[in-house]
Nucleic acid binder design. Structure first.
Lengths: 102, 102
DNA sequence: ACATAATATGTCAGAAATGACATATTTTCA
DNA sequence: TGAAAATATGTCATTTCTGACATATTATGT
């Protein structure tokens, strides 16, 4: 894990602590974060490809524009559950979901 | 969706309401539930294959035996986040995770 | 059958995620 | 440039999830 990657994650709001703590980030924890960010990216790509605004997507899934923004920003305080529900609401199949995780 | 499947889900604690409501379960909602159950099953299979007890897995991931039991039971009040964290703690790769979702 | 281990079920206080709202910032386009 | 649309950021009350615990039920081995 390089410094650039760390900086990018920290910018998104992930509290990675000191450099020492960061180096101690377990493979599991890292995989979890990467997985979330992969879903975030997928969500944004899918929404844009469908030409929907964040507000429109929010209405479809009975959420709010601000939460959609946070989802796409990879905000740590957004659950994988919500990301997955959003992707399903956009018509992404389980198969496609699985592919975007790997 | 047949009656047998409905019964099985309801037994796990999913509140699907009346038959009418059940028929109105959207494809998204169903996909979400199926996805969760797939992860539940994967978790149990993986734990058993590693010859760990629920209590041992709980210790590894700093949870509790009862929560592990609920995860494996497909309890609706367990997040996908926790299921995924558990699978990662058991050494499942993102790739394998993606495969088990699809 | 019996003890012991493993798993399941119910509950709850505290922690985390949620939708909603206000408002700031950025993008788009005439 | 400047107005309008879209997106981002911050906050908060309510809802949902969590680990922990007690206890019930079920499996395992002798």
């Amino acid at each position: 894990m390089n410094k650039a990657k760390q900086t990018k994650l920290e910018k998104k709001g992930w509290k990675l602590g000191t450099a020492d703590e960061f180096l101690n980030l377990s493979a599991d924890e890292l995989a979890y974060i990467e997985l979330k960010l992969a879903l975030s990216d997928k969500l944004k790509a899918k929404r844009v490809s469908k030409k929907l605004t964040q507000a429109e997507l929010a209405r479809i899934m009975k959420s709010s524009q601000s939460r959609v923004a946070k989802m796409e920003a990879g905000d740590p305080a957004v659950s994988i559950d919500l990301l997955i529900k959003s992707l399903l609401a956009l018509g992404v199949s389980k198969k496609e979901l699985g592919r975007s995780i790997s």
